[in-house]
Amino acid sequence: MKNLLEHMGIDPGRLHFSWISSAESTKFVEVAKNVTEEVMALQSKEKKYMKTKPKVA
């Protein structure tokens, strides 16, 4: 799935996968921080994921 999304042009780094047990609170914090940082770094690039108003011919 990650492969196909990236194949379609989603920036690598926007999609993260992780196994976190309910007992691993510190790992969760760490992963959440990393994900936010990476995605924030990418956000300024463009707004292509937003829906636009329909184009009327």
């Binding site: 194949h7 379609m8 042009g9 292509k48």
Partner: peptide, 14 residues
């Protein structure tokens, strides 16, 4: 060919 493109090019391609 698509795999070799950059994310922006891929996006534009699709």
């Amino acid at each position: 060919k698509v795999e070799e493109m950059s994310p922006e090019e891929k996006w534009a391609y699709f």
